[in-house]
């Protein structure tokens, strides 16, 4: 066991820790992003709000999410430790360094990018995560007709707002009542905290949206270096696969994911107001 800790405390071991936590966080980012795609659904936020409940209640996910918070912490603290240690390795700086000639900007600024992301995470969680968990919030009642397909008229889908003080917990039940044509029908009723509404409200602020977009740019640069770098740290590198890891990694983690994330606030600011 002491050997294991010796490993973790070595410069290579600490890099392994960064790489391991980093790759896990990459996975989280991927899942988080795909889940958040529900924001684009034109359903009054039902899918998104359902997803929010699922993510916070399903036991396995709950465990994983607490692991995730822990790993963010480990990643950040270890990162700060390394940045500090690496700074100490060069007490006197160069007067005329031309660092861009030999290494990419992102690779040289992981600490800065990581700090931006940490600030983002704190604000992001302090807002949505904290409010969702601890602050009474408006909820929505989604009523959807099920069972019988109506023959005439429009489907009777209704969204009713529930005041925050009236909402206790998410509910899911069915009711039978007459539809518009007077026939009896079965309706599914879902009552959910309206995180979607919170999100839509928050992203009305251009400043807030700008901060989110900036953070996603930071994420892009952070992962452009971070994702492929993790493989190098694990020693997974060959002439054949290195370009593939780098290429695909960049496409997914440095372009697609940050772009879709950034699209969400922009969507609410410019399209869905």
């Amino acid at each position: 066991m002491s050997k294991f800790f010796e490993f973790l405390n070595s410069s290579v071991g600490r890099k392994w820790l960064m790489a391991f936590t980093g790759l896990f966080l990459c996975l989280f980012v991927l899942v988080h992003m795909s889940g958040n795609l529900q924001l684009f659904k034109n359903d009054g936020g039902k899918a998104f709000n359902q997803y929010a409940v699922f993510m916070t209640t399903f036991p396995l996910i709950k465990v994983v999410s607490y692991v995730n918070y822990l790993l963010i912490l480990v990643h950040a603290l270890n990162g700060f430790y390394l940045v500090n240690k690496n700074r100490q390795a060069r007490p006197v700086k160069y007067a005329g360094a031309k660092s861009d000639a030999s290494a990419s900007w992102s690779s040289r600024n992981m600490g800065l990018l990581g700090t931006v992301l940490l600030v983002f995470i704190v604000i992001h969680m302090g807002h949505f995560w904290r409010e969702f968990h601890f602050v009474p919030m408006e909820a929505k009642q989604y009523i959807t007709k099920i069972g019988e397909i109506p023959t005439e008229g429009t489907p009777f889908d209704t969204v009713i707002t529930i005041q925050a003080k009236d909402f206790k917990e998410p509910r899911h039940y069915t009711i039978n009542q007459q539809d518009m044509s007077g026939r009896m029908a079965t309706y599914e009723v879902v009552e959910l905290k309206d995180l979607y509404g919170e999100v839509a409200e928050a992203f009305k602020s251009p400043l807030y949206v700008a901060f989110y977009v900036l953070a996603m740019i930071a994420l892009s640069y952070h992962l452009a270096h971070g994702f492929q770098s993790a493989f190098q740290t694990f020693g997974i590198r060959s002439k054949t696969y290195a370009p593939i890891i780098k290429g695909l990694g960049n496409l997914l983690f440095a372009i697609i994911i940050p772009a879709l994330f950034a699209a969400m606030p922009l969507y609410f600011l410019f399209i869905k107001h």
């Binding site: 410069s11 240690k85 030999s102 290494a103 690779s107 040289r108 740290t233």
Partner: peptide, 12 residues
């Protein structure tokens, strides 16, 4: 010496 952060400046 510091830790490697895979900037690859060394190789360059």
């Amino acid at each position: 010496f510091g830790a490697c952060t895979n900037t690859e400046a060394c190789e360059a």
